[in-house]
Amino acid sequence: MPDPLTYILADDDELYREYTLQQLNSIPGLQCLCTCENALITREQLQHFQPDLLVLDVEMPGLTGIQLAKSLKQLPFTIFITSHTSYAADAFELDAVDYLVKPVKPERMLRAIDKVKVLANIKATTPAAEAFQTKDEESFFIKDKNVFLKIAYADLLYAESLGDFVHLFLQNGEKKIALVSLKNLEQQLPHHLFVRISRTHLINIQKVTALDNEAVHIGKIQLLIGKTYAENAMNVIVGKQAIKRFI
């Protein structure tokens, strides 16, 4: 039987903290290390316990959950909980596994924990050297469960960061997970085919169907461009190919 996933729960609202704790206690395979009422206490407990998972309220006095996450060099798997959807972009910029809006339904919490379990299992069972390997000028391999899966560069639409992992979105609509950071993936993929457009996204240049100052469009998918990446992304994607009014 695998070891339980350890977690810390942080929420300044005592009633909601207890409500969330009850939800988590009903899910097999989890072990609560402690609960915290503010971000500063949470920071201390993270350094002491080093849990697998942090379930973190966004709106806390003094230091918010987002600010706490930004202050840490290394985050465990993190699920943000909040009363407002407006924080979602910030949460995913921090590579959150999930973002839940209060009141969280039990089935929604269960789905979020299932995501964490999948990632934790991949991390525990996949040697780093086997997680991602370039094959040739046209493809690469990822370790998918116990199988090496070959993916053609032409089939990869874009990659999305999830801390030590990436989600790979494929042409056929499938989504795969690879145990490699977006930074390392960027270094290994051909630079003439792929470009980083934000902290969280790396795209296949050949799949771009439209581009403006704020977003890249891949068919019906819209991905926001980070300000610090905008100039390079525009140059790499468009370059000298744009039709000019005057020559």
Rank of each mutant, 00 (worst) to 15 (best):
I237T: 05
A230V: 09
E160I: 03
A242H: 08
P103H: 06
G29H: 09
D155L: 03
K175E: 14
I79S: 13
T20D: 12
N213C: 04
A131E: 11
E44V: 14
E214C: 09
V216G: 08
T35N: 04
F92Q: 03
A89C: 14
D114K: 11
A128L: 11
D212F: 00
I27M: 10
A233W: 09
D98E: 15
L100P: 08
I243Q: 09
A10G: 09
L211V: 05
H217F: 15
F92R: 00
N235F: 11
E93C: 03
F169Q: 12
Y87P: 02
Q187G: 03
K244D: 11
D155N: 02
G65N: 04
S83R: 06
I27D: 11
K117A: 07
K123R: 10
K70H: 09
F141M: 06
I247H: 13
C32H: 05
I41K: 02
M1E: 15
H167N: 11
K183T: 12
A233E: 12
I218P: 00
Y16I: 03
P127C: 10
L156P: 01
D144E: 13
V180W: 04
E137F: 04
P4W: 09
Q47H: 12
D136Y: 02
D98M: 10
Q45I: 06
K73D: 15
K175D: 12
H167G: 04
N146A: 13
S181E: 12
C36R: 00
V238C: 04
C32G: 03
S181R: 03
R111D: 15
A69K: 01
F140S: 01
F165V: 06
F148P: 10
D57P: 13
L54A: 07
V166D: 02
G239H: 03
Y153H: 03
L193C: 03
C32M: 06
Y19K: 06
P51D: 13
F77Y: 09
I203N: 00
Y87S: 06
T228I: 02
H191K: 04
D12C: 05
E186L: 12
S71G: 10
C34M: 10
A88E: 12
V238A: 02
I197Y: 00
V118K: 07
Y19N: 09
V55E: 14
E44T: 14
